[in-house]
């Protein structure tokens, strides 16, 4: 599908989606609670068939945290980026997409580790890289470590 068709399709699946035309990909912004159901529809619908999660990244915005899902279809070779933002920075929660794409397991653990976004329904949400007793989430902009990070 072309980007135009994808745009229509996404809007037909969820009318509240905000769609921005990116450089290469469409970026579909949806609220956190709607993300899982839209992703499920996009994966399971026959004419989109987004069966492969390329990349899952968390971003720290000044007021909230965002999660990007870059998904593609191995059948049609079209891609799309889903974006969601959490309500606030303290209790950042997003539904896990592990049940749709198993590769999300490690991606989500990584995002949880470094940005502190909790993924509900994740089977095993532990820290990925840091020690289990580490305090804070290093990729957050307000994280400080006077010993190891030198601010310029």
């Amino acid at each position: 599908m072309t980007n135009e068709q994808l745009k229509e399709k996404v809007l037909s699946l969820y009318s509240g989606a905000q769609i921005a035309e990116g450089k290469q990909l469409l970026t579909v912004t949806v609220p956190a609670e709607e993300l899982y159901s839209l992703a499920k529809k996009l994966k399971e619908s026959d004419d989109t068939a987004f069966d492969y999660l390329m990349c899952l990244s968390g971003v720290d915005y000044p007021t909230n945290l965002g999660v990007f899902y870059h998904i593609t279809s191995t059948k049609y070779n079209h891609s799309i980026a889903l974006k969601t933002t959490t309500a606030d920075r303290v209790n950042a929660e997003v539904d896990s997409v592990y049940s749709l794409w198993k590769s999300a397991e490690y991606h989500e653990r990584e995002v949880y580790d470094l940005l502190g976004i909790k993924f509900t329904n994740h089977p095993d949400l532990r820290r990925m890289f840091l020690d289990d007793d580490w305090v804070g989430h290093p990729l957050r902009k307000d994280y400080s470590d006077p010993l190891n990070i030198i601010e310029r």
């Binding site: 990116g22 990349c55 990007f68 870059h70």
Partner: peptide
């Protein structure tokens, strides 16, 4: 300003770079 995404094929698999 914006988000940029690039896929390349490294020797081990798909390497994606995502820049905000």
């Amino acid at each position: 300003e914006g988000e940029f995404f690039q896929r390349v094929e490294s020797a081990r698999g798909e390497l994606d770079v995502f820049i905000v």
